[in-house]
């Protein structure tokens, strides 16, 4: 039933998305963007990402990989093996077994490699969905599922843990580090309240309000291209816009930025996977 409703929503997306593309060529971008935002908000209660969550659930529970074990019976996201309620909003966190601070996606990858025996290179080869792919990568579906089980829970990155605190401070430095041909840092585009590029709002990631906009609704079903994407992707694509080279997938740099962003939104209630334009 639910699947049908979501498929219906997908068709509406296809049609309205086309309409939007058409209007966007006309002069009145501003109005089109407003309409689009209204539409986006309305569609959020039948988010196609729910299909990704369902797939993620199957993947989490299935025995997989060379070691033929399930993540449900082997993976500890910080609250104990197989415990997922509220795990997403408490990451990034420090994991003793890996001796590293990890964000949710990186931790799931770590479990797939260490517990199930998958090769990191195979997962990192194509970690993000592109518009022409038939579906999202397994890792994206898994992140969607885990994120869905933090719906209604407040972000709670543990800055009292000195290891997390240190990564947070490093993330803050990275967010302000200007380099490259255009002298851009994250904070060039995301360092002041109420700014935008063209019609796109740019949250100020250094404030609680802005950081909330930055992390809320991710992982997301993205209307542009109709793809499911995670925060790892968002960081990757912003580094592209920053004219930097490409950050390595699931690297310390990305964890540091995600620690900074998420902890700045600490206390705010997470609404689960969302829809982004």
């Amino acid at each position: 039933m639910k699947t049908l409703r979501i498929l219906g929503a997908l068709c509406t997306f296809a049609v309205t998305g086309g309409l939007y593309a058409q209007t966007a060529d006309n002069i009145d971008h501003a109005k089109a963007a407003q309409e689009f935002e209204k539409f986006r908000a309305e569609m959020e209660d039948s988010n196609p990402a729910e299909l990704n969550e369902l797939k993620g659930e199957e993947l989490w529970k299935a025995k997989r990989g060379p070691k033929n074990v399930s993540l449900a019976e082997s993976c500890d996201l910080g609250l104990g093996i197989g415990k997922i309620e509220g795990a997403y909003v408490q990451m990034p966190r420090y994991f003793k077994d890996a001796d590293a601070v990890m964000d949710a996606e990186r931790r799931i990858v770590w479990c797939m490699v260490e517990k199930q025996g998958f090769k990191f290179e195979d997962i990192a080869k194509k970690p993000f969905q592109s518009p022409n792919d038939s579906g999202a990568p397994d890792i994206t579906n898994l992140v969607m599922y885990i994120a869905g089980h933090s719906r209604g829970k407040p972000f709670a990155v543990d800055l009292k843990d000195p290891k997390v605190r240190e990564v947070y401070e490093i993330g803050k430095e990275i967010a302000h580090y200007r380099a490259g041909p255009y002298d851009f840092a994250c904070s060039t585009c995301h360092g002041t309240d109420g700014k935008r590029i063209r019609m796109q709002d740019l949250p100020n990631i250094n404030t609680k309000e802005g950081a909330t906009k930055a992390v809320m609704g991710w992982p997301a079903w993205r209307m542009t291209g109709g793809v499911a994407l995670t925060m790892q992707w968002r960081m990757n694509d912003c580094f592209r816009q920053q004219r930097f080279p490409e950050p390595k997938y699931a690297s310390d740099t990305i964890t540091a930025l995600l620690t900074y962003l998420t902890a700045n939104a600490n206390g705010v209630v997470y609404k689960g996977p969302g829809i982004k334009r």
Partner: peptide, 30 residues
């Protein structure tokens, strides 16, 4: 900037990127 964190941030950036298309690693240096 806190020099300690700044140095660690730069070291982290230096190891965590790969060249892609026209964007080479020399872009990471200030």
């Amino acid at each position: 900037a806190d020099e300690n964190y700044r140095a660690k941030a730069i070291a982290m950036i230096q190891k965590d990127f790969k060249p892609r298309g026209q964007a080479d690693l020399d872009r990471l240096a200030e």
